[in-house]
Design a protein around this nucleic acid. Structure first.
Lengths: 115, 115
DNA sequence: ATAGATATAAAGATCATCTATATATTTATT
DNA sequence: AATAAATATATAGATGATCTTTATATCTAT
């Protein structure tokens, strides 16, 4: 069995995707709202540039991990609300577990600095 | 006060650097040995391509976070051994703490999937 | 003598984010 | 009524760190 290489750019992509999917667990949200919630809930640590966020949302939608639907909000305003698909829930569960393992191994090595 | 943006490429760079510095805490090592230890200690999860590892070592050396010294090993073989500098130790402490906060916030959001 | 493992190095390709810009609506201010 | 600021989505192009590939050389086992 060939062990997969640590593909950091891929991991960071998955990190962002996991974060966005996780925020969508408790109901549908539009992009801007989603970015604000991630920032709030992380104490200001995680922030998405709009130029980063929207392409990721489009990618997730294309991969059918989320489903987007335009909704009339005011007399003219359109907002696109996203919901998790069942594939998205599955992806989320798998990747949260992977990240848990990832962090465990990291502190297994880097934890030596403290105590 | 302007909050810094989440700069993922920068974070992954710092992740790799932190991992390498952490492995050097318990004594000097040469590049190849360092890569093997990271792989072993992480249960095969973290692997560095050589084309990734050596540029990082050169960068860390240039930034004086590690110090490299060539050492005659066999009759002809040269190996470059790296040791942590005091600046490197400081960098390591700061970044391990940052990663701990990072992971805490991540699971604060993504932990909802379990339990 | 040869092959495979060990060891370091660097050039160029890849690819996801980041910066900057564009467009439009809603709300608050004057 | 006019203007500014906040809200909201979108995309093109620049950036930059890793990844792939290739080069070079030594040591060990067969």
């Amino acid at each position: 069995m060939i062990k997969p290489q640590l593909d950091i750019p891929l991991l960071t992509k998955q990190f962002n995707e996991t974060l966005i999917l996780a925020i969508l667990v408790d109901g549908k949200k539009h992009g801007y709202q989603l970015a604000l919630e991630i920032e709030e809930k992380s104490g200001g640590l995680f922030r998405f540039n709009h130029g980063t966020l929207y392409p990721i949302l489009h990618r997730l939608e294309k991969e059918k991990l989320i489903r987007g639907a335009w909704k009339q909000e005011g007399p003219k305003r359109q907002r696109k609300y996203y919901t998790l698909t069942s594939a998205g829930k599955k992806y989320l569960a798998v990747h949260v577990a992977q990240w848990r393992e990832f962090f465990t191994q990291f502190f297994n090595i880097a934890g030596v600095i403290e105590g």
